[in-house]
Amino acid sequence: MNYIFFFLIVISIIVGAVNGRLQEVVNSIMSGAELSVKVAFSLIGIMAFWLGIMKVAEQSGLIKFISKCLKPITKVLFDEIPSDSPAIGNIAMNFTANAFGLANAATPFGIKAMEDLQAENKDKTTASNSMCLFLGMNTAGFQLIPTTVLAVLVGIGYKNPTEIIAPTLLVTTIAFISAIILSKMFQRLYKINKEVQDDKHS
């Protein structure tokens, strides 16, 4: 992430200077920073609502119950977290919300799941295997109906907008499965690296 951050900013300044758009680049620092705060603040209300609902679900034992029901699947995918961890229930809620295109509800569920995964994590600043897997699955963006896309297509007078649903679903499924396989592969690669490092230190 250090390199990506450095790369994005340095490239922007160099290319901006060459293109004669340095002023725009500088202005974008201001507007980008403002946008970040707007995005964060726009989350407060909806985040509070869903965190509230989830607290009730947690206290009544519902989240634990969902976790237990999904045990057979999650034992394979998230093999490092205890199968009765509330993380599983929250992950399930996150995917359900995402699948139905409810991004506003999905984010609080996802953050709650990350907090639960963090509780099982030994190094609090480094991502665990389960976190990388969960985020990999999330960034693949599995969705049953692309609601926003459909809205735009209807807006431009697309005759049969629903014909894109099936191909979109196929593509997102491929990406989703690839993310799971990739994260299982990379997690092994990383483990080897880490052991090498540990050996060096000892």
Partner: peptide, 15 residues
């Protein structure tokens, strides 16, 4: 968010 959104805004503004 500031880190990522600013970096990406800069990239988009630079062309």
């Amino acid at each position: 968010l500031v880190a990522i959104i600013v970096a990406i805004s800069m990239l988009r503004a630079s062309g």
